[in-house]
Design a protein around this nucleic acid. Sequence first.
DNA 1: GATGAATGAGCATTCATTCAT
DNA 2: CATGAATGAATGCTCATTCAT
Lengths: 228, 228, 228, 228
Amino acid sequence: MRLYHHPRDAAPVHRELTALGTLQRKVRERRARRQAIQAAAVQVFSDKGFSRATMEDIARQAELSVGTIYLYYRSKEELYVSLLFESMKIFTGAIEKIMATGLPPDRQLKKVWEYFYTYHTRYPQSYRVLLFLQQPGLTAGISPKTLQEINVRAGRNFSLVSRVVAAAMAKGIYRAHEPREVVDLLWSLFLGLVHLSETRQNLGVTISTLKDLHRKAFRWLEAGLRPR
Amino acid sequence: MRLYHHPRDAAPVHRELTALGTLQRKVRERRARRQAIQAAAVQVFSDKGFSRATMEDIARQAELSVGTIYLYYRSKEELYVSLLFESMKIFTGAIEKIMATGLPPDRQLKKVWEYFYTYHTRYPQSYRVLLFLQQPGLTAGISPKTLQEINVRAGRNFSLVSRVVAAAMAKGIYRAHEPREVVDLLWSLFLGLVHLSETRQNLGVTISTLKDLHRKAFRWLEAGLRPR
Amino acid sequence: MRLYHHPRDAAPVHRELTALGTLQRKVRERRARRQAIQAAAVQVFSDKGFSRATMEDIARQAELSVGTIYLYYRSKEELYVSLLFESMKIFTGAIEKIMATGLPPDRQLKKVWEYFYTYHTRYPQSYRVLLFLQQPGLTAGISPKTLQEINVRAGRNFSLVSRVVAAAMAKGIYRAHEPREVVDLLWSLFLGLVHLSETRQNLGVTISTLKDLHRKAFRWLEAGLRPR
Amino acid sequence: MRLYHHPRDAAPVHRELTALGTLQRKVRERRARRQAIQAAAVQVFSDKGFSRATMEDIARQAELSVGTIYLYYRSKEELYVSLLFESMKIFTGAIEKIMATGLPPDRQLKKVWEYFYTYHTRYPQSYRVLLFLQQPGLTAGISPKTLQEINVRAGRNFSLVSRVVAAAMAKGIYRAHEPREVVDLLWSLFLGLVHLSETRQNLGVTISTLKDLHRKAFRWLEAGLRPR
DNA sequence: GATGAATGAGCATTCATTCAT
DNA sequence: CATGAATGAATGCTCATTCAT
């Protein structure tokens, strides 16, 4: 396990300028390959978990050779982290879009909460990738710089939602709380719901679907937020 | 990895009946050994995670040989599951004790919620062990029978708390809901809070401790439960 | 490649004293295994060179599994270094034996020179192992402490022979030189002769055997040492 | 690793005859490319050793692509051997120049000996390349024809120096020996001196430089050659 | 029962070589 | 011709599990 690595994301430096069209195609292809690998990795990681997933599994899934993956990612860890970044980016985008709607803040919050579920439905694996970060020892293989980057990006997402909550409080729609803490609770609740429902699925229990719990949870939570 | 295994928990059958006293000592020693192994395993699993923990780590921690562990547990998976059982047993006991106090049900619920935190503080490793069940692929190494047993025990715990919630509703302290769902939400929320705070710890972020969030979460949640 | 490692040579620590006989047997077996592995390694390393030799080759040669080798040596490098130590030990022993004969120093030197050849004939692989140290990059995988140890042991051998040469000079048998430099030349010459003859063998050339060159070289060299 | 290969050195055959000037330019360019690759390879091989050097290292050093190297050399082995040829050619040239001076043969021999050192100083890497031939297993990747070629060229160099030695003997400057064997000893001694000093450098020992040993060695050796 | 040496399948990673563009 | 992306066999090392003592 290489502990840290330099990013392999940077565009390759060409000594002489090749035809512009060719260069563009190259860049496009490179991006496409990266995405293909990520798609395969998301699948495999979420099927087997980080440790049990093998690079060969991922290669097979991507219909590529193992060596090729290492042309795009320096290590299993780096590949994993790239998935995390991707997840976070999608999240950020979705939240920003909701905030741009100009809806009343409580309606926005509801949409955010709904997006949690949508995201989980659409990218169930990406979701699970997020959960890996809790695994002890995983962070040992990630460079401090990358960890810092993860923090920044995660913090950004939390801040965005905090702003929505703060707006609702400012308008008196919600009672005064520390907005950031409200977001922590919201997110924790969703995290826990997913965890619970997945555990139950693992164990073969079928009661109370995530969908159901998710809907009811918000109503209940919001009731606690609104003034009496 | 053996997929399923016969339980090794039953007392060994002796060809010739030894003196009763000797037998009892044997049983006692066997139980003690199992506990020593479990204690070591809880420590190692929670330090390194399931995959990264090695049987030798556990043997060293227990000051036993690897071979001996296999005299008590058929596989790494089975050893892990035994920890889970232990966790659940402790939980059950604590909840039953709370229910036996005769306190008003909302006070009991508060105590249960507080116990979540106490348990996490006192047995942080055991807690983490609980989370493993969500890991995909882990259940592959556990026999259906054992899975079933886990379900039964987990269900029992949920039912116990449900009864407390139901009692509070019956008395009009809480508004009418499906008690079982309320428990799901409570548990999910706590699960998520732990997850969030551990992830942050892994990433080196120190804002908003679990203790703080845990306390505030209940006040907020309960507000949503009580009639207006 | 692990860079440094703790020695695995130390006798295992037993918690409780087992029967003395059993313990002795264990130690004896452990030593025997180590020697079996070394014998296999010497063979394989000298057949294929350090880089091309694989741990599986060595295991196969030793009729053991790969894992077993790692029970005795932490890495390929450590295994290699152990061979080097062994070579040097044999050398030291042989030279000390010659020095203990009480022969006149020039006769002793002749015997040392002859031992160079004997050693090469008897342990041709061990000899080649010594040569590896010149390979650039190999030392990168060896801990400074171990390197230091190699230096000490090598220096000891050079010093022993120096003493023989110094004695001959003191008695006026040889002209005055820096004894250490004479030894450097002697050793270099032998090293070079082996190198040349092995290269020729590699290339399929059969002229002038090492045996022949070795004998003539000493006569010629000594002529330059003796007073006119 | 391909075992044998057809030479790729021959000028390419063009289907249609291009203008003579163009052809010449092509040949010139081809030669220049080969030299650029060789220069890079010498550097990398001597830095890392044969096994640890990668084709990509060499390509990067030559500021070319890996593919291009394979247009000029069929394999890593062939590239390596081409370096050997180059080394030998330079050697031959230098010795012939010394022989053309018309100096007395013992003076010529001294100059040859000095050239050994000069060459090692000026092309330390090329020197190390020579040493590779001793490595067992390397020759497996070289065709018999190429091995034969190496032999012929090496033999040529030995013969040249032999002629110098023979001349000195004919004039009574040296005592009668088999000239070829004297050359073997000379060359072995130098080889050994380089080996010894490089090993010491690898191990971090700084006593007795090559320069010093080299100078003293000749004085001492020649003393053994001259009549009493 | 207890031990711990032995096993060997499994895995991340590297690198010589090929080939479509 | 030149490129460099793709390949996949090869390798050092790990670790769950077994079994002779």
